[in-house]
Structure formats: C-alpha cells, structure tokens
Computed example of a mutant assay.
Amino acid sequence: MSPRPDTITGLHAEPALARTQVSWEPLGFDPLIDHFRVYAVRGESAPGTPRESDLIAKTVYPTFAHTNLDPAGETWTYTVLAVSDAGRRGRPSVPLTGSSLPSVTATGREIARIGDFDGRTLEHHLAPSSYAKIPAEFPGAVIEYEQGADEPGTAWPYLLPGPGDAWAGKKPYRARWTLTLDDAPQADLDLAVWLVDTTRLGGILRVSANDEHVTDIELPVGSTRGSREGDATVPGSTLRRSFHEHALPASLLQAGVNVLELELAEGGWAAWDAVGVFARE
C-alpha cells in the first residue's frame, strides 16, 4: 500500500492588506503528492479534526493566498494536510492563526478622498465601459481634480491609461489631485490607492506630492476586464482588486494648497476603486 503523506510542518502566515499568505514546508516524492487541502476557521482556534465545511482551497503548491478579506482586518486559523496520488491523506498540521493587516481606511481619520472604497468603479466618470472617450476628453493626458469643487462622476475617469494602451495614444497619463489642508501636518499621513482591476501588463504608478517623489507603486497583473466591468463584488467576478497604502511624509505637505500626482509611468491602465488621504489616529 502507498505510504501516507507526512504531516505538514512549518506553517507560516504572512499578513498583507485584505489578504493573508499561508505557506508551509514542501514534502518529498514518496509518496507523490496530488494536492494540499487548506482549511480555515474564523477566529483564533480550530477543531482538532478539520471539517470539510471549512475547506477553503486545494492547491498543488506549498502556499495559498487567502484573499478578499475585510480591509479592516480578519483573523483566521489555518490547518493544512496533504493528499497522495493514491488518495491517502496525511495527518493535519498543527493549526496556525494569522491575521490580515488593517487598512488605513478603517484605522485612520479621513482627510480627503475620491470615490468610495467599495470594490466598484461605478461612481467614476465614464464607468463602467466608456473608456474610449478618455483620450478625446483629456488630450493632454492630464486629469485635473480639485477636492471640494469636482465630483468623481464628472471629473475623475474610471481608468487611468498608461503607455501600454494603444487606444489612449501610448501615453503615461497623470491624475493631478489638488487638496487644501487647513494646517501643515505634524505627522505623516497615509495615502490609500484601491484598484478594481489592472491589465495583464501590470505597471508602475508613480506618486508625488508637491512635485516631490513619494513612491512607485508596482501594480499587479490583473484580469483586463475592468475596462468593461465595474463591480468586483459581484459573485464570480474575475476582476482582480488590489490595495496599496503608503505614507505621505509630512515634510512634503503644507498648509494651504497641495497637489498629489499619480502617474501611470509604465504598463497598462488601472481601474480606480477609490483614493484617499488619512490621518493616523
């Protein structure tokens, strides 16, 4: 009879925004492993024997990304076991508790935002599918948005094109967001950039504040469906949301008018969910 797979060891949980990356030590080739079964239970404990109702994934790799978690943060307890090519199951691993990182949209105080942090592009200009009008409306590849004067539905197109988009002239579009602060910040603020989808080209979103470079956000490979579909929360949606949050140094900001610029310097378009600036509480 084929031997039983070894018990999974080295279970590890790496926290991220709205996701937890679970990994473990790979097994050898005797027996051959058909797949791993990943079980998860909300909270900090799990039953001694995994319940099939708690199975959240089967994978052939010694890693699994638990995605689409609440951006406010979630805690789950994971158990993994291996199944051989003969269908024999190994004993379950020791359970491991892991938590995703909380978003600044949940922990911070809102200073300004464009759009709603809800997994949809629908409140933005030209959404969900009229992207072809963007080059004509913004021939200079610059989008200007003034906080308090403009609205997402009329002034902030749902896509920011990039140099990989032939339909938009292969230009690095820039979104310039002007906001006024009553006082100069005494501590760093946080910038939240949530996307509903990106293209298979990925890309680099370059962020600056008052003409000073802040960070380059590496955009993940997306499904390239967000140019035509505007709601990633629909059951079965193939849109690939991503969440990016970075510090805005207080030294780059001032009392009065400030300009944040988001330039899609490389790759294809990004579909906005929302962007916001938050003070740390």
Rank of each mutant, 00 (worst) to 15 (best):
P3Q: 04
P3K: 04
P5T: 02
D6H: 11
T9G: 09
G10V: 06
H12E: 15
L17S: 05
A18N: 09
R19N: 11
V22R: 03
P26S: 01
G28M: 00
G28F: 02
P31Y: 06
H35P: 03
F36K: 03
R37I: 09
Y39R: 04
G43S: 02
G43W: 06
S45V: 14
S45G: 00
P47C: 05
P50V: 01
R51M: 11
E52A: 11
F64L: 04
A65K: 07
N68C: 05
N68L: 12
L69E: 12
D70E: 07
A72N: 10
G73V: 05
W76A: 02
T79E: 09
T79M: 14
V80Y: 00
S84L: 04
S84I: 08
D85V: 15
G87H: 06
R88E: 14
R88V: 10
R89K: 13
R89Y: 10
S93M: 11
V94M: 11
V94E: 13
L96W: 00
L96I: 13
S100R: 02
S100H: 04
V104S: 12
T105Q: 15
A106C: 12
A106G: 13
R113C: 14
R113E: 09
I114V: 15
D116W: 05
F117Q: 06
G119F: 01
R120Q: 15
T121M: 05
H124C: 07
H125T: 12
A127L: 03
S129W: 13
A132N: 13
P135L: 03
A136C: 04
G140K: 14
E144R: 15
E146F: 08
Q147A: 14
G148H: 00
P152I: 01
P152D: 02
G153E: 12
T154Q: 12
G162R: 10
D165L: 06
A166V: 13
A168R: 04
A168M: 08
G169R: 11
G169N: 06
P172F: 03
R174C: 14
R174V: 15
R176V: 04
R176E: 14
T178V: 09
L181S: 07
D182K: 08
D183Y: 00
D188C: 08
W194H: 15
T198N: 08
L205P: 07
R206N: 13
S208L: 01
A209Y: 02
I217Q: 13
L219A: 12
S223H: 04
T224C: 03
S227R: 14
T233Y: 02
S237E: 08
T238N: 08
R240Y: 02
H244D: 10
E245G: 09
H246V: 14
A247W: 03
S251M: 01
L252S: 05
L253Q: 03
V257H: 01
L260F: 00
L260D: 05
L262S: 11
A265I: 13
A271E: 05
A274G: 13
V275E: 03
V277L: 08
E281M: 12
